[in-house]
Amino acid sequence: MPNKTLPPPDSTVDITEVVCPVTFVKVKVALDDLEPGQILSVRLNDGEPVENVPRSLKDEGHRVLKLSANGDGTYNLLVEKGQE
């Protein structure tokens, strides 16, 4: 079920300048400002963040839509806020 047409994000957050656990806290704060169903775009670094942030968002009940490489060593993650 390829998901080609993804909606534009409602908000963005950049966590490339911070390290764990602030990475997760920043994303959480950004999600707090959104309503369930709205979409957040997260810019994150290769390595630990890109390996782990999608999974912690899933564990928190949000829906990860797409991960794409920006070509500069960073990634963009689209996540839809889950129900409270």
Partner: peptide, 15 residues
């Protein structure tokens, strides 16, 4: 195959 959205997360999660 059915539930997959080809989001790319697993490819990066796999070390």
């Amino acid at each position: 195959a059915e539930p997959c959205t080809f989001c790319g997360v697993c490819a990066k999660a796999c070390r």
